[in-house]
Design a protein around this nucleic acid. Structure first.
Lengths: 192, 192, 192, 192
DNA sequence: AATGAATGAGTGTTCATTCAT
DNA sequence: GATGAATGAACACTCATTCAT
């Protein structure tokens, strides 16, 4: 999709830096060094640091959204949809731990940045897509009645929490092994 | 407990700064200004910025641990214990949103710091206390069988996730109103 | 040899500062001010203060080494070689009092620094060159028998000592006027 | 002589610090720590850092002066006097390497300080004493004719130079072993 | 599109010194 | 005499950003 190799190289370098050192501790110089590019090049392509971080964030969430979209094509029941939210998230985290770490820890900062509006918009679309997929089942009374924001946290909360621990190296169990468990619990927690 | 007024003033100022601006954006100068102390005084009492942050973190988690400890005194069933974990967490977050925001976002940074070992130790004790409270019920078969780290995430995950959103101003519902809901779901998710 | 004007300007400014105030009392700001450069520029070119000092030191010793090398081309007797060590040192000090003051007072500090190894290497080459020039005469028995390190101090010691005093403004006599005296004494002290 | 134990303890601690780290790198806090005293105590006894350093310097030179004075009592010839200057210096350096290192490297700084005048006075007395001891022999024509400041450097220069190298760990030979050699060379260099 | 020298406000930190107890 | 909390000017250094080439 992206033609400019340079731009992608920079983004990859930025991800590696951010994953190792955290967003704040990552400097333009570190990214430049890792990308094998010049400072001028970074600024030519992205304008400033904030926009590099934002681009990284959006690229990360797009990946997950794409994975989810694929899943929705086949999910033909309330149960399948709910479990899909969990399993596709876990699949994405397992496949992209660096992206996941970054996205999980940088939401606040990107939201507060110059690019926050763009992010919130993307996020809204993301949630809208999910709610749209579930709206029918909801009206049919497939789910326990609860506020929509609680509903989201009940489904994905345990997965988020465990993923954070796993990504931080604090978990004993392997995330991939918990796929079915968390999916089942999510479904049990929200089914009517 | 703490005698030194100055030290506490500094810590309070640091909390306010960190809560408004985030850890990285908080400068020594901001804390100094807010505490009405001198730079030298900050360094006399804490040595460096990292140690101020770590002291803040430990003070925050101690509060929650104390609250939990009170609750355990009265919780006399598996259900009560599980629900207590949720409700006391929510109560603490609602009562101390600044501490909560800070603790929730700075764990990684403090763990990676000079004081990380001390923190991990405190954390271990914290979890040990919780597991000890639940161990008896576990052996009696009160809970679904699952890895211990998943067990923890299943109980507290939805609460953590929703609390994050609420603290970031992204929730429509009020956290306090979800107290019983999350407690009940936690219990339903882990009961045998 | 050096192309970068900026780098040389900074070094010249550093020499002036160090000569007036001493190494420790010289601040980056003083150098920056005198060089008419920005702080960033200093750090862009040298990395840190220590490396500025080390670069200065090496440049200074290179000058003297070059002067000595020129002299060796013409010195064709033991006496000429020994006297050359004294006279070229005095000539260098008289011509470059700032460099000399700095080199004489900062050897320990540079040796103890990050760049110490590089300095010791340069020094070793310097001494190796001198010993090589004298080795032949030594074997022919032109010199009194004494340990090599004493030999060096006997030749250059009075000159070093007086140069220190002269550079510190403590000498009544002028260094240049003592050229022949110290050269003759050096030769008399080591000749067989 | 000094009654106040505290004052001496502080001075000893200062010497140790200065010897290990250098004057500039030695902080009041380091001295305080080593002396087992309080900051207030240091300032009570000495007033400020500069005066601690100056006191240290003067104590060091007094030691050497006392040693020299003892020697003069027995030295009854030009040769004995000249050799005494060398041997008593070497004896003092060997017996007090820390003091020697400090004195050798801090003269300029102390001279430039608030206490500089006091030091210069002490120094003048020191040299006056030496010149007085040699004046008679000088008039008798025992020495080569040369400026008085060159005379001093010719006698003590090799010893100073070698002592510096020895104290810095750069000498192969041991200083004590060179006692007679340097004394003899000094005498040979200045005798008529 | 790329380069990298130059910029300078801002950061954490140090440390001699003061002074109330 | 002794203590140590408090002070704040001064420091080395960082780093996002600009811009001429």
């Amino acid at each position: 999709m992206a033609r400019s190799t340079r731009k992608d190289e920079i983004l990859q370098a930025a991800l590696a830096c951010v994953s190792e050192a955290g967003v704040d501790a990552t400097t333009i110089e570190m990214i430049r060094d890792r990308a094998g590019a010049s400072i001028g090049s970074l600024y030519h392509h992205f304008g400033n640091k904030e926009r590099i971080i934002a681009a990284l964030y959006l690229a990360g969430t797009e990946q997950y959204a794409a994975l989810l979209e694929q899943g929705f094509a086949k999910a033909d029941s309330a149960e399948a949809c709910v479990k899909l939210l969990v399993t596709s998230y876990i699949d994405w985290v397992v496949a992209n731990p660096d992206w996941a770490r970054f996205v999980l820890h940088s939401r606040g900062r990107v939201e507060a940045s110059e690019m926050g509006e763009q992010l919130r918009e993307a996020n809204q679309q993301h949630y809208a897509r999910i709610y749209q997929a579930l709206a029918g089942y909801r009206e049919q009374g497939c789910f326990k009645s609860m506020p929509i924001d609680c509903f989201a946290s009940v489904i994905i909360g345990p997965t988020h929490d465990f993923s954070r621990n796993w990504l931080a190296g604090r978990a004993r169990s392997d995330l991939a092994d918990c796929r079915e468990l968390f999916a089942q619990i999510a479904w049990d927690s929200v089914r009517a």
